[in-house]
Write a protein that binds this DNA or RNA. Structure first.
Lengths: 225, 225
DNA sequence: TTTTATATTTCGAGA
DNA sequence: TCTCGAAGTATAAAA
């Protein structure tokens, strides 16, 4: 890992064309040759960058200033960095990173709801998770208290795409005389207004899921007794 | 902008819970208090981070090791960094960045196709760009040589969502007796096989757009005479 | 390997 | 301010 603080101008040509005027920035050059150009603000996204695989060539512009050219031979993307002044430079051996361990995404939400389907609708019981169909698996297939089939689509954030997806499943499932009629529940930690409108219009119920409360139900250590 | 190279362990709690075991990494602390944790590989995305607005508090763990706590008071997100050893540290004044200038995304593609609708289908002429409907604007509304209406949806990458979107527009537009029948063209620089199958199944034509060729048509300086 | 779905997405435009 | 769509999206899982 090499860190460079420099006054530089950056030009990118690839899927799009982009230009950064001369200014002071931080350059991060990773072991795989990738380059990140960061300013002192914004989010985690660099102003400009080059993804691996790529190669960095250090050269000199016509006027004698240092110039780096980073290219991806496959996609023909090019990042050109022209230097006015280098303020700081250092190189560090980081070694291989053991990587990030995550918890709390959609898969976990699905597990929790599979264990507690009744939180979605009274009397709901699980038939199976990842119920297979020709166009992909339905997150949860359940039965309600009357024995009728209920397909559940789970998202962390409920948007219009999820409703479309569930609609396709329901259309297919309702062609099966052994299952029909199948109704749908769209479950998410948060449901966008447009998605709710579309779902309601199609007769699909919406369920907002409280992740922390579910986890509390699931984990006995969270209970008082 | 502050740069720190250190052997550290990182824990995040917020929308999800994530953990990074002790290892050597680069920390970037921006002027707005945001923190990025980078390893020597991967893409431009940090292993872990904290987005602004947030505040960094430098403290000491029970065992005397330095420990930073970065918190977002609004969302209650917390990033905790525990240090074993700091290998390098430097601070730099970057000033405000003038920002990135872009060119070549969907908007430009829409402008080019609006100028040259006949490249999508023979005899096609533009009625208007961003044709308004109750569920959003249609990218291009055109007429073919027979005077029939044609709705065009433009994407850089043609995927299934775009076909769904155009389908909704067509369904709505075809309810208008003054317009109907309206057919659809799905235009993109690249169309995914699944999207093409779905479009074809619904009677929607697919058009793969050559961005460079279009730009050549549009810009006289690209012509030989 | 290619496709599909998610993301602590981030970012920008419009209402 | 909020909502919605696009991204040089990145990333991981599934086919």
């Amino acid at each position: 890992m090499r860190l460079v603080v420099a006054t530089c101008q950056v030009d990118y040509a690839g899927r799009l064309t982009a230009h950064l005027p001369m200014a002071t920035r931080v350059l991060m050059i990773k072991a795989d040759g990738s380059v990140l150009v960061h300013s002192d603000g914004g989010s985690y996204k660099p102003l400009n960058w080059m993804s691996p695989p790529c190669t960095l060539r250090e050269g000199t512009a016509d006027d004698g200033r240092p110039e780096w050219t980073v290219t991806n031979p496959k996609t023909d993307d090019t990042l050109r960095i022209l230097f006015d002044e280098i303020h700081h430079e250092s190189t560090h051996d980081l070694g291989v990173d053991p990587g990030l361990q995550k918890d709390g995404v959609e898969k976990h939400l699905q597990e929790l709801l599979a264990d507690h389907p009744a939180t979605l609708a009274p009397g709901l019981t699980l038939v199976r998770r990842e119920y297979p169909t020709a166009i992909g698996p339905v997150d949860l297939m359940c039965r309600d208290e009357t024995g009728a089939s209920v397909a559940v689509e789970i998202k962390r954030r409920g948007e219009i795409d999820g409703v479309e997806q569930l609609t396709r499943y329901l259309e297919l499932l309702n062609r099966d005389p052994l299952l029909a009629p199948v109704r749908g529940i769209f479950a998410a930690q948060e449901i966008k207004p447009q998605a709710r409108v579309l779902a309601t219009d199609r007769g699909i119920a919406c369920a907002v899921v409280d992740y922390d409360a579910l986890r509390g139900l699931d984990d006995p250590s969270h209970r008082l007794f």
